Simulated scan of single mutants.
Amino acid sequence: MSATLQQNDPESLTALILELNGQVASLRDLLIHIGQDRDCSELREKIRRLRRNCVEGCKFIAQLILPQLRSAVAEGIPVYNSHHVLLFFMSQLLLRELTKCHRLVQVVPMDMSGYYENRAGPSNLGNVISQILLCKQITPDFNQEELCSIAKDSEEIVQLLTEMQEFLPKQETNLEHQMALTEDLNKWTKKSRGSSLCKNMRFLCCIRRTNYL
């Protein structure tokens, strides 16, 4: 990441997190163009590089924050680190974008052979070894390599989230669940009120039915 970090420098750490936030947002925006008119080999390569930068950025910032939290907890000191909370939620957002990216690459594959013809592919070492052992030319499947890379990135982010959640305040851990429950409760409350109102109206109609005999 471009921002430099000095030891125990909150401003530099904030700059790193803001940079990561911009990268995750840019990744989301680029994924919108997959399957659209702007979709091309250059776009897929840009997505690949940005995706890797986001994952490495999350891991790098976590390595700066987590040791301090572990040390404080080991000494019995309660901690609340706003940078840690922000990183946790941004990592969740990144994981969702990785899931979407994986699905889009599956559904809308891109022929990258022409793009990598005169360039080194994302990871062609395995293909080179296979060519030496099998003594034949192997055409790399860049889409399959990308799917494997995204899956690996997703596993790393899941593991990172698990580690970070251990030091997350309970109210932050359950925030999304509480919001979801609140929304569901409001929906059911509105439905119950509407249903109760309809029942009462039908009851009143029965009582006030006019007798024409």
Rank of each mutant, 00 (worst) to 15 (best):
V79W: 05
R70K: 13
S130Q: 11
P10N: 05
C58Q: 00
L43C: 05
G194K: 11
M110L: 08
V108W: 01
G126W: 07
Q171S: 11
L104M: 07
E166W: 11
V73I: 12
L20C: 04
A25R: 04
E166G: 00
I61F: 00
Q6H: 06
L5W: 10
L69R: 03
H177N: 09
L95I: 00
S82L: 04
E176N: 04
H83S: 10
P122S: 05
Y80E: 13
L185D: 00
H33Y: 15
N174I: 10
F88N: 06
S192D: 11
I207W: 06
T4I: 13
G22C: 10
N21K: 09
P122F: 10
L125K: 15
E45L: 02
Q171I: 15
P10Q: 05
I207V: 11
E11M: 10
P122L: 03
T4C: 05
L104Y: 02
E156R: 10
L133W: 08
L147C: 08
N118D: 15
L204N: 00
Q36P: 03
L86F: 11
A74E: 14
A3R: 12
Q159G: 03
I150G: 04
L20D: 02
T139Q: 12
D111E: 06
F60Y: 12
N21V: 00
K136M: 12
R49P: 01
P78L: 08
F142Q: 05
Q6S: 15
Q171L: 13
I32D: 12
Q6L: 07
E166M: 14
S91D: 03
R103M: 07
L185W: 07
L168W: 11
L18D: 12
Q23G: 00
N124Y: 02
E176D: 13
M110S: 01
G57L: 05
R209M: 13
N21L: 07
R208C: 13
L94T: 03
R48Y: 12
Q159R: 09
Y115G: 01
D37R: 13
